[in-house]
Simulated assay, not measured.
Amino acid sequence: MPTESLALFPLHTVLLPGAALGLRVFEARYLDLVRDCGRNGRGFGICLILKGEEVGEPATAAAFGTEALIEDFGQGDDGLLTLRVRGARRFHVERARVRDNGLQMADVRWCDLDGHQSVHPEHGLLPVLLDSIIGKLGGEHAQAERALLDDAAWVGWRLAELLPLHDSQRQELLQMDDPHARLERLLQLV
């Protein structure tokens, strides 16, 4: 499978497929990135920072990340550009390089998309837990179709998003290709 070039936006957080994330953008390299994404109708990659900071020198980022698609943008009270992005496809960085402006570009290989697979009986507690969490928190997932509570991938991603996990645990789950293995790991974590 060929690789595709993708601009990276390393953060001290893990974006999961289907999850929303708010960003404030102020560095020139990321303002350029957003402009390019708008012009080309593309997303960008978000990877967890393993070493370094979000601003300044390019950080060392995890090799697995998630494509971020811009859903909305605006201007914050402080005058900075604000974005609302949603996680889409997972990817693996094959090779990364840094442009003159400090923007990281990567040759990525897209991970296989999660197909619908029913939750296995041994993971039956997890949809119940997720339903309870969503019932208490409300929010956008409260509007989801009830049938999604039997979709192993959806249940796994929503629990990984909503449970109080460390970023290293979310990153571990992001790197798993099998939705049932992801549910098994979540069962161990709860």
Rank of each mutant, 00 (worst) to 15 (best):
Q104S: 04
I134S: 09
L80N: 12
V128C: 10
G74D: 10
G156K: 11
A96G: 12
G87N: 10
R84I: 15
A142Y: 08
T82H: 04
V155I: 11
V85H: 13
E122F: 00
L103S: 01
D72T: 00
E94G: 08
R99F: 06
Q143M: 11
E172Q: 14
L163C: 14
A142G: 06
R158S: 10
V93N: 07
G138H: 02
L173G: 04
L149V: 14
S118K: 03
L83K: 06
L163S: 13
T66E: 01
L113E: 14
G124W: 04
A106P: 01
T82N: 14
F64M: 07
W110D: 05
R90N: 11
E140S: 13
P164W: 09
A59M: 05
R146K: 12
G74H: 10
V98F: 00
R84H: 11
D150S: 14
R86P: 15
G65P: 00
A59R: 05
L81W: 02
D107E: 11
P164Y: 12
A63S: 13
R86N: 12
A142W: 04
H123M: 12
L162F: 08
G102H: 03
W157H: 15
L69T: 13
L69R: 07
L80S: 06
F64S: 09
G138V: 13
L81S: 03
A106V: 00
V119E: 02
G102W: 03
K136V: 15
L103D: 09
A106Q: 01
P127S: 04
H166M: 13
L125I: 14
G65S: 04
D150K: 10
D150V: 07
G135D: 12
L83A: 07
E161H: 05
A152S: 04
L113S: 14
D77M: 01
I133H: 05
S132I: 05
H123V: 12
L159M: 11
L83S: 07
A144G: 03
A61E: 08
R89Y: 06
I70K: 02
R89N: 12
L162C: 13
A62V: 04
R90K: 07
D167W: 05
R170I: 02
C111P: 01
P164H: 10
Q175M: 10
G87P: 09
W110P: 00
Q175R: 06
R90Y: 01
L125Y: 11
Q171E: 00
G135M: 12
L83I: 05
A59S: 09
G74N: 08
V93T: 13
H120T: 11
I133G: 08
H92G: 10
H141I: 01
A142I: 06
G87S: 11
G76V: 07
P164R: 14
L129G: 08
K136Q: 15
E172K: 10
D112E: 12
L83T: 10
P58D: 09
L80F: 08
R109P: 00
D131R: 13
E122H: 09
H123K: 07
G124S: 15
F73P: 00
A153Q: 08
